[in-house]
Amino acid sequence: MRDFDIIVYGATGFTGRLVAEYLVQAYPGRGRWAMAGRSAAKLAEVRDLIGATADTPLVVADADDPASIRAMAERTAVVLTTVGPYQLYGSGLVGACAAAGTAYVDLCGEPAWMRQMIDAYHEEAKRTGARIVFSCGFDSIPFDLGVMTLQDAARERFGAPAPRIKGRVRKMQGGFSGGTAASLKATLAAAAREPSLLKLLASSFALTPGFSGPHQPTGLIPEYDATLGAWVAPFIMAPINTKNVHRTNFLLGHPWGEDFRYDEMMVAGLGDVGKAAAEAISKLNPFASDKGPKPGKGPSKEARDSGFYDLLFIGEMPDGSRLDAVVTGDRDPGYGSTSRMIAESALCLVEDVTGDGGVWTPGALMGAALRDRLKAKAGLTFTAG
């Protein structure tokens, strides 16, 4: 019997604090969870600020102290970590969870590192029963489960999955997190040191070892989407989301076919105005400025609560038939919605899903169970028709 169901590692950081606060508010009185970080004093301060009970356990753990990381992993059923960039601070924790048979969820959008962890720990996690689940935030749950929702509906209506799906971000308010920006910078720095990573980063099948499917739409340049009658532009999170979607298909034994094609883009608008907007978006780097949030910092509660997103998934069947699915969220994607998604992912592993060990995606391991939790508790909707 482990001491805890969930340890929130990184609880003194901005996103980790939001996760801990969500657990306090959404599940009052629920015991068997703890807050972890480098400083007991800072953990106690956050515990009091978020209204957690005074007896909420505090666990001191530091990525620079492997023994403390191992001890943390051995005490809990699930480690929920917001301590990134994961390629700088996460490898030891993944290894410790794999060795201890401990489930793990994070917010990783760093595909080269994820592939390294798959290669290093997938078999060990299978042996010990550790369920390692990356990308349990805005990248990539709404997209992973959005595709799954559409494919469920396609099989029901047409008797077969859609071989081609377009993911389209129709509306979104709220920025990306400081951790996302830091992760991208760390990834680019790693690629500069090791150019071979560039090929991995460019491949839609970077997370499907031993399998490479058909050529995929790149989504790297503005284009006119005849299906929508609108111009679309590159979406900054597509390089991680598309890889996770293909890994879900891969892990499930290719229920959507080995020839499945998928891409993601942002809807820019109609006519000449839409074309100009798409071209402007394609030249914009939201991480280029130093004005964005720093790791550990983030927007106000008012800004988080006023954020939202609206995602459209278009399934195209071989006979020309079309089926759509829509995913919405009622908080800003980078913080408010993400903190809820990762918390519910951890709870899903504790309460709803067993499954074999290994390195998973949210969709492949938790699927409909997680979707139901997010609809009931986290402000997301999933519809198809």
Results as ranks from 00 to 15, higher is better:
residue 172 M to G: 13
residue 172 M to Y: 03
residue 173 Q to G: 04
residue 174 G to E: 07
residue 174 G to C: 11
residue 174 G to L: 07
residue 175 G to T: 14
residue 176 F to R: 02
residue 177 S to R: 12
residue 177 S to W: 06
residue 178 G to S: 13
residue 179 G to N: 13
residue 180 T to F: 05
residue 180 T to E: 09
residue 180 T to K: 11
residue 180 T to C: 11
residue 181 A to I: 09
residue 181 A to M: 06
residue 184 L to S: 10
residue 184 L to K: 11
residue 185 K to Y: 04
residue 185 K to T: 03
residue 185 K to A: 15
residue 185 K to I: 04
residue 186 A to W: 11
residue 186 A to C: 13
residue 186 A to N: 10
residue 186 A to V: 13
residue 187 T to P: 06
residue 187 T to C: 14
residue 188 L to H: 10
residue 188 L to G: 01
residue 189 A to C: 04
residue 190 A to T: 00
residue 192 A to L: 08
residue 192 A to Y: 00
residue 192 A to G: 12
residue 193 R to S: 14
residue 193 R to W: 00
residue 194 E to T: 14
residue 195 P to I: 08
residue 195 P to L: 10
residue 196 S to C: 08
residue 197 L to W: 07
residue 198 L to W: 01
residue 198 L to G: 00
residue 198 L to C: 01
residue 200 L to E: 13
residue 200 L to N: 02
residue 201 L to Q: 07
residue 203 S to G: 06
residue 203 S to K: 03
residue 205 F to R: 03
residue 205 F to E: 04
residue 206 A to F: 03
residue 206 A to I: 04
residue 207 L to F: 07
residue 207 L to E: 02
residue 207 L to N: 06
residue 208 T to W: 11
residue 208 T to I: 07
residue 208 T to H: 10
residue 209 P to S: 01
residue 209 P to Q: 04
residue 209 P to N: 04
residue 210 G to E: 00
residue 210 G to P: 02
residue 212 S to P: 00
residue 213 G to V: 05
residue 216 Q to L: 08
residue 216 Q to W: 04
residue 219 G to H: 06
residue 219 G to S: 02
residue 219 G to Q: 07
residue 221 I to T: 14
residue 221 I to Q: 13
residue 222 P to N: 05
residue 222 P to H: 07
residue 223 E to L: 10
residue 223 E to S: 14
residue 223 E to V: 06
residue 223 E to K: 13
residue 224 Y to K: 11
residue 224 Y to E: 07
residue 224 Y to C: 05
residue 225 D to Y: 10
residue 226 A to P: 00
residue 226 A to M: 00
residue 226 A to E: 13
residue 226 A to V: 03
residue 226 A to C: 00
residue 227 T to A: 14
residue 227 T to P: 00
residue 227 T to H: 08
residue 229 G to L: 11
residue 229 G to H: 10
residue 229 G to W: 09
residue 230 A to D: 06
residue 230 A to R: 15
residue 230 A to E: 12
residue 230 A to F: 00
residue 231 W to T: 01
residue 232 V to T: 15
residue 232 V to A: 15
residue 233 A to L: 03
residue 233 A to E: 09
residue 234 P to F: 08
residue 234 P to N: 04
residue 234 P to A: 06
residue 235 F to K: 02
residue 236 I to S: 10
residue 236 I to H: 13
residue 236 I to R: 13
residue 236 I to W: 11
residue 237 M to G: 01
residue 238 A to R: 12
residue 239 P to E: 06
residue 239 P to F: 07
residue 239 P to G: 09
residue 240 I to T: 13
residue 240 I to C: 10
residue 242 T to S: 11
residue 243 K to L: 03
residue 244 N to K: 00
residue 245 V to A: 09
residue 246 H to Q: 11
residue 246 H to I: 01
residue 246 H to R: 11
residue 246 H to S: 05
residue 248 T to G: 01
residue 249 N to W: 03
residue 250 F to W: 15
residue 251 L to A: 12
residue 252 L to D: 12
residue 253 G to Y: 02
residue 253 G to A: 06
residue 254 H to I: 01
residue 255 P to T: 03
residue 255 P to A: 07
residue 255 P to H: 02
residue 256 W to S: 04
residue 256 W to Y: 14
